[in-house]
Computed example of a mutant assay.
Amino acid sequence: MNFILAGHGNIAVEMKNSIEMIAGEYPNVRAITFQLGDGIETLKDKYLKIINQSTEQPFIIITDIFSGSPYNAAAILAMQSENIEVISGLSLPLCLALLHLDYSSISLEETFEQLNDMKSDFIKSFKKIAKNIAEEEEL
């Protein structure tokens, strides 16, 4: 599985750097930037440059904001190829989870279902956890 991280400004590049800091280098993870003045065509060209250089398919493109320009450009490409999936909500937990799924046993379509099952693991409230622990200790 190949991954392209994309978002406004340099967020995707920095996300890739953070992934490498935590989990090591992943040659199948690439990042693109979306700078002021770039448009949908520029983004599509950036995606295609990466996709066309790879002999391995499929690709998951992870963007920062649903329906933002990086997402919309990726969605156009996904409509043209069954080997491209687009997921919004770029975050470090999401990326790490995606990198550790067993793609030999799930389809590209099942990837999103697996992520939905894990989404409660991505966002945690310290106060809620502390309250639950305190309530358990009272029992």
Results as ranks from 00 to 15, higher is better:
residue 1 M to V: 11
residue 1 M to C: 02
residue 3 F to T: 06
residue 4 I to G: 07
residue 4 I to N: 04
residue 4 I to C: 12
residue 5 L to V: 03
residue 5 L to W: 07
residue 6 A to F: 11
residue 6 A to M: 06
residue 6 A to Q: 14
residue 7 G to W: 01
residue 8 H to K: 08
residue 8 H to V: 01
residue 8 H to E: 09
residue 10 N to S: 12
residue 10 N to F: 01
residue 11 I to Y: 10
residue 12 A to W: 11
residue 14 E to F: 10
residue 15 M to V: 10
residue 17 N to E: 06
residue 18 S to V: 04
residue 18 S to D: 03
residue 18 S to H: 12
residue 18 S to R: 05
residue 20 E to K: 09
residue 20 E to R: 07
residue 20 E to V: 06
residue 21 M to H: 00
residue 22 I to P: 04
residue 24 G to K: 10
residue 24 G to C: 03
residue 24 G to E: 05
residue 25 E to T: 15
residue 26 Y to Q: 01
residue 26 Y to P: 00
residue 28 N to Y: 07
residue 28 N to F: 08
residue 28 N to D: 11
residue 29 V to F: 05
residue 30 R to A: 15
residue 30 R to V: 03
residue 32 I to A: 12
residue 36 L to I: 15
residue 36 L to N: 12
residue 36 L to E: 11
residue 36 L to M: 15
residue 37 G to E: 08
residue 37 G to F: 15
residue 38 D to L: 15
residue 41 E to H: 14
residue 42 T to A: 14
residue 42 T to K: 06
residue 43 L to E: 08
residue 44 K to D: 03
residue 44 K to T: 01
residue 45 D to S: 15
residue 46 K to G: 05
residue 47 Y to D: 06
residue 48 L to G: 05
residue 50 I to Q: 01
residue 54 S to M: 03
residue 54 S to F: 00
residue 54 S to E: 11
residue 54 S to K: 08
residue 55 T to A: 07
residue 56 E to D: 15
residue 59 F to P: 12
residue 61 I to D: 15
residue 62 I to G: 00
residue 62 I to E: 07
residue 63 T to Q: 12
residue 63 T to N: 09
residue 64 D to S: 12
residue 64 D to I: 03
residue 65 I to V: 14
residue 65 I to D: 04
residue 69 S to Y: 02
residue 71 Y to T: 07
residue 71 Y to M: 04
residue 71 Y to R: 03
residue 72 N to M: 14
residue 72 N to S: 13
residue 76 I to L: 14
residue 77 L to C: 02
residue 78 A to K: 13
residue 79 M to D: 13
residue 79 M to R: 15
residue 80 Q to A: 13
residue 81 S to T: 09
residue 85 E to K: 15
residue 86 V to M: 09
residue 87 I to E: 11
residue 89 G to K: 11
residue 89 G to Q: 02
residue 90 L to Y: 11
residue 91 S to N: 08
residue 91 S to E: 14
residue 91 S to T: 13
residue 93 P to S: 01
residue 93 P to Y: 00
residue 93 P to G: 08
residue 94 L to K: 09
residue 96 L to V: 05
residue 96 L to Y: 08
residue 97 A to Q: 10
residue 97 A to P: 02
residue 98 L to I: 12
residue 98 L to W: 12
residue 98 L to Y: 13
residue 102 D to W: 07
residue 103 Y to E: 01
residue 105 S to I: 10
residue 107 S to K: 02
residue 108 L to S: 04
residue 110 E to K: 15
residue 112 F to L: 13
residue 113 E to W: 10
residue 113 E to P: 03
residue 115 L to S: 00
residue 115 L to G: 00
residue 116 N to K: 13
residue 116 N to G: 14
residue 117 D to E: 06
residue 118 M to R: 13
residue 118 M to N: 00
residue 119 K to S: 12
residue 119 K to A: 06
residue 119 K to D: 09
residue 120 S to W: 13
residue 120 S to D: 14
residue 121 D to R: 05
residue 122 F to W: 14
residue 123 I to Q: 04
residue 123 I to D: 00
residue 123 I to S: 10
residue 124 K to S: 05
residue 126 F to Y: 08
residue 127 K to I: 01
residue 128 K to A: 12
residue 129 I to E: 09
residue 129 I to Q: 01
residue 133 I to C: 09
residue 133 I to R: 03
residue 134 A to N: 06
residue 135 E to I: 01
residue 135 E to Y: 00
residue 136 E to L: 04
residue 138 E to Q: 12
residue 139 L to A: 13
